[in-house]
Design a protein around this nucleic acid. Sequence first.
DNA 1: ATCCCTCGAGTTCA
DNA 2: CTCGAGGGAT
Length: 678
Amino acid sequence: MPSNSKPTKAAAAQRITKLKELIGKYRYEYHVNNKSILSEAAADSLKHELSQLEELYPELITADSPTQRVAGEPLPEFSSYEHKWPMLSLNDVFDETELKAWEDRIAKLIPDKDMSYFVDIKMDGLACSLIYENGELVRGVTRGDGYVGEDVTHNVRTLESIPLNLHKGVTNKELLKGYTEIRGEIVMYKDDFAKLNQQRKKDGLELFANPRNLAAGTMRQLDPSLIAARPLHFHAYDLLRENREDISTNELCYGYLKELGFIINQQAARKKDINSVLSYALDWEEKRQSLNFNTDGMVIKVNNRGQFERLGVVGKAPRGAIAYKYPAEQATTKVRDIQVNVGRTGAVTPFAVLEPVTIAGTTVQMATLHNGGEIKRKDIRIGDSVIVQKAGDIIPEVVESLKSLRSGSEKVFKMPTKCPECDSALTKKEDEAVLRCSNLSCPARTHRQLEHFVSRGALDIDGVGERVVKTFLDEGLIADSADLFKLRAEQISQLEGFKDKSAENIIKAIEAVKNPPLDRFLFALGIRHVGIQTARDLANAFGDLDSLREATVDELAEVEGVGEIVAESIAAWFIDEENQQLLAKFAGLGVAPQRVEVSRDDRLSGKTFVITGTLEGLAREEAEEKIRALGGKVSSSVSAKTNYLVVGDNPGENKLSQAKEHYIKIVDESELQELLRS
DNA sequence: ATCCCTCGAGTTCA
DNA sequence: CTCGAGGGAT
């Protein structure tokens, strides 16, 4: 959590006031205007900070603090409707210990031997209750504050997944008589959401924030025809009757819901004990990305509905059910500082140093800010409270700064005008976003270039990574990439942390890459705009280093994928005096790239592959290599021209949904192997 | 001139 | 993984 030292009482009081204001505003917008100005996770994070401060200074707790009350207000535009039975919320648990504590609590209250559980995915949508009289839909009501909701009958009638009449074929005919209430969640599927947003992007409209907000926003439209135009779906999870004996277990309940014509989650299942519940929940924590709707956890209920009733209600939540919440993917924290990094091309990129915060199970303390423009656009200042999330589940990103929480001591960050490494001037090209160090031999650039040279995909020297490169540079053993080939084992073994054996190994590894394939060597040189793909195209077109060196800009630009800008950049690199010396140095040390052989086997020619997720049998690079060897192309993003999407473990959501959209063939690893063999 | 596709560059943490 | 820019098709 933010702030590790204890704040003074005055500072805490000030902070508490601001937190209360912001959380209050969030609640108001959320419940009254159905607008989410913060994600639930971010709001939770702020509430957590608030309750921590209140714990520190209990005398600062007031009755109107968000930590003290629970309520919401119905929408003014719709008429309110009082729920016959309140739509309670659930208490949360976050880990095994808390889950087992819940089990202990209910076991004490009901010492039955035959306790089993019913588990379902907790959908991130809009809770809604449907009332049927004698089998006919008469009313739809939103959750509201749990006691009073909004009458959205006209709107729910437009959803195709909501039957206007309960299906007569149900095995329990009682359910078709009298009053029957069906509860469930209205959601928008992720692929539908992506499609809608893509269309809006094309039309230049502002993008929707997330499926839940869009579903909620849609339901509060007063014109039902607008709702019909948006793809919403109702997934049922509960059925309530005056006579509770009509349905004895939740498992049966789900069966009836299905028979009555409702969508239920396929993943819902009965579990015989709490350990099976836990492993099921953990299993879905990993697989949840593959669901077509968002979820932040699982709902666990006592399966027997009689037992559930007997357990009763504490506060605003039933004892017999619990929400097992997955770790949030968003949290709030503070920006301690903003610093900059100099990259291989001299690009200066700022990043935020954050108060460490746990997001989705990992501790985050840094996040890139991309460039000065980004900082300005998001108005991020040193000392700001910010919302941080993991983009694509891996890379942390600062979503926004919470301006209303500012105390006035925050500092505006200015991009430096001089290189932090070598003090040279920084320049920015017209309408380019990045700032670059003008000094071609800036030590930071040399350093990063060397790291690139030895990296995977480039020369890939075994045992030589970032750490070792830095040591060699600092100790003055090398000044450029060619110097690596001059190294002797005695020089290395003298350094701290290296033994004779490891020094030998490094020398061997360096020797082993003296004749790299031309494409890798070109890539390793680090010419601007020449990545591995372009390096490959160039290697294929020119065959050897000398022909490439002598090529004119026009000749270079004839290569597929190389245009004027890239051609100029390549020619300029070879003309540069220092680079010529470097190449001569390589030649003198016996470093000679191999000509590339063009493959005869072209069974996959004309086919474009994209890989997502982790493959089990072969490394990603190997797979790419094999596809290329057979004339296929491997691209990094899915488009209409992609032929196959190879899906491994933990696939990227985006690629998957785009592939589905373009009806691209999706293959798993074994199917890929099959393609490579046949 | 405009759109779509592809590639390069920079990035975090375990 | 995401963003933005370069290349090429239309």
